[in-house]
């Protein structure tokens, strides 16, 4: 299985699941609206009937923000972090919920979205993914620890000097490495999720360890999926940015057009996120992962009826010659 083929199959699967994108968009929008409400209320209170609004639509005046801060005795700004925190916590849990449903759809035999399959997957895998989140946070901790260690080293080597150039470039390299490690950690977490859905095991740690081995053995292919889809994401943003700058945002029709452009971009991002999972699922199947070779020695999987239903390997497109991963 090549990365290109996995992406192609994944993209095709997601493009067929339009209702899934719609469901996720509604969910995401409701979540974002939670944090937006106090801001919208503050704007409405301050500028609802003010003549200043007509000027501010052409460009933000920071003094208006401070006026609103004073006018609301800081409540809105104080509420923002709380609302943001709650939204992000909700987003985190929602992400776990949705991932189970989406991967269930992508790992099903015909890969077609049905509400029943999706929501059943959401519920079935939530706690497994939650345990996986806790386990992978260790991985995240290691990544952040490496970053902190390298930063301390930078300071020790060049922090007391008068020249910034070495520390400037070293910090860029470090940040690039951090990004790379975060990507790798994300990849590992994604394949562990797929493993938990596809295979009949419930152990998050075992899935994570397996996933680390899988990702390291097939690192090039896995990374290519990530790079290609990230480039696609950058392209989507570029297109959105050009369009939004071209829209005159000084009247109601202009603002409406902006809203449409923004939400189309959000949908493209949702499509991209789902394509990540779908492509990775295709990659998983395509590489015929070594069945838990060492696992039986440690753990005997309990029988689980859904495991049969979620075993689609026989109907998958045949893996090509490249896919022969190390046993």
């Amino acid at each position: 299985m090549t990365a290109r083929k996995a992406i192609w199959l994944g993209a095709r699967t997601v493009s067929r699941a339009k209702r899934l994108i719609l469901v996720l968009w509604i969910f995401l929008t409701l979540l974002a609206a939670l944090a937006t409400t106090p801001v919208a209320a503050a704007i409405s209170k301050s500028l609802g009937h003010s003549k200043w609004a007509a000027e501010l639509i052409r460009g933000l005046d920071p003094s208006w923000i401070m006026e609103t801060y004073r006018d609301t005795h800081g409540y809105v700004l104080a509420a923002m972090p709380v609302m943001l925190g709650l939204s992000l916590l909700a987003a985190l849990l929602a992400h776990l919920l949705i991932a189970g449903g989406a991967i269930s759809v992508f790992a099903s035999q015909d890969r077609r979205y049905t509400a029943a399959l999706f929501f059943e997957g959401c519920g079935r895998y939530f706690w497994r993914f939650f345990r996986l989140l806790l386990a992978s946070s260790l991985l995240l901790g290691i990544v952040l620890g490496i970053n902190a260690g390298l930063k301390a080293l930078e300071t020790r080597l060049w922090g007391e000097g008068m020249i910034e150039t070495p520390i400037f470039y070293a910090s860029r390299v470090r940040l690039a490495l951090l990004l790379f490690l975060l990507v790798a950690a994300g990849m590992v977490a994604d394949y562990a999720k797929i493993r938990l859905v596809v295979e009949p095991g419930r152990s998050a740690i075992r899935a994570l360890l397996w996933s680390m081995r899988f990702a390291s053995r097939n690192f090039g292919r896995c990374l290519r999926i990530w790079v290609v889809l990230m480039l696609a994401g950058a392209l989507f943003y570029f297109v959105y940015d050009r369009i939004s700058r071209a829209i005159p945002q000084t009247s109601s029709p202009g603002v409406f057009l902006l809203l449409i452009a923004q939400q189309l971009y959000i949908m493209s991002r949702l499509w991209l996120r789902l394509t990540f999972w779908a492509s990775q699922t295709e990659m998983y199947f395509g590489l015929k992962p070594p069945a838990p070779a060492s696992a039986p020695e440690l753990f005997v999987w309990p029988p689980e009826p859904r495991a049969v239903l979620a075993e689609p390997a026989l109907t998958m497109p045949q893996a090509d010659e490249e896919a022969a991963g190390p046993a």
Binding site: A32, T36, I43, I57, L258, Q262
Partner: peptide, 11 residues
């Protein structure tokens, strides 16, 4: 329009 613009941006 200003309310819509900023609210939509925040969202």
């Amino acid at each position: 329009a200003v309310l819509s613009k900023w609210a939509s941006n925040v969202m």
